[in-house]
Amino acid sequence: MPILPAGPLSYGMQLPIQSQSAIYAESWEAGAPAADLAEIARTADRCGFAYLASCEHVAIPRRLAEAMSTVWYDPVATLAFLAGVTERVLLMSHVAVVGLRHPLSTAKQYATLDHLSGGRLILGVGAGHVREEFEALGADFDGRGAVLDETVEALKAALGPEEYPEFAGERFSFSGLGQLPRPAQERVPVWVGGSSP
């Protein structure tokens, strides 16, 4: 399990550029290339930041685009890119809307990220708040709280040390299906965050 640096206070950051909501984005981010994102990550790594975080939205409906923007990098791709240009800083999804996909699919992506980064993943998960995203992907928006609860339990199994994880829940069930590589960490930390009801 990644351990945040010892001491009374640790700093992490949600990265700029990778999500450009009007609530927090600065104007320079709109034209920033990948090289700028990499340089920010390298600087945070060098300066002792505890973690770097990347958000998730698959698609933003027109009704929310002015406030939220449609710039939302994929967190797995973004964190994998940054893992390759950093050495010690932890890599966090802030937050992955895990109800949008099956837990085995999520586990495959994030186990690979943890494996390739040498055990630097913090899997931050949330319920999501954009109905149209769920509907477009055939996911259950109204039941997303219960889906999140079950998905967290399924992910604990799917991201554990077993090559053939097992889980049986109300919505998801799997056994006898092997997934390699396993995460580098014996147990990937799963943090729950968000602001929706």
Rank of each mutant, 00 (worst) to 15 (best):
G128C: 02
V125G: 02
T86R: 02
A168W: 13
L82F: 09
G48T: 06
D114W: 02
K108F: 08
V97S: 08
H102G: 01
I60P: 06
R63M: 03
E66C: 07
A136I: 10
A127K: 15
A65C: 02
T86Q: 07
I60W: 08
A168L: 10
L123S: 11
E135P: 00
D140I: 13
A157G: 07
K156E: 12
F167L: 02
E135V: 14
M1N: 00
G160E: 03
S105L: 13
L159T: 11
L113Q: 01
V71N: 13
V89T: 11
V95D: 00
H57F: 02
R187L: 05
P161E: 13
A35T: 15
T70C: 12
V97D: 00
Q18E: 08
A44W: 12
A83R: 03
S69W: 00
A59D: 09
G84H: 07
P16Y: 05
R46E: 15
D149E: 14
L180W: 05
G118V: 03
T86A: 07
P75T: 12
V125R: 06
A157V: 11
H102A: 11
G178C: 12
P75Q: 13
E135T: 12
V188H: 04
A184F: 10
F49D: 04
E153C: 05
V76H: 12
P8T: 14
G194N: 11
G48C: 05
Q179V: 10
A38G: 00
A53G: 15
A35D: 15
T112R: 10
W28T: 08
P61Q: 05
I60V: 15
H129K: 10
L91E: 09
A50L: 02
H57M: 02
L116T: 11
R101F: 00
A22K: 05
V76S: 08
V98H: 07
E87C: 04
G160V: 02
A44C: 15
E56I: 10
A41D: 03
G143P: 14
M68E: 12
L180A: 13
L180I: 14
E132W: 09
M68A: 10
V85E: 02
P2R: 01
W28H: 07
S105F: 12
L148G: 07
Q20E: 14
L123G: 08
F141H: 09
A157Y: 06
G48S: 09
A83L: 05
L116H: 01
A44S: 11
R171Q: 10
F167Y: 15
L82S: 10
E133Q: 07
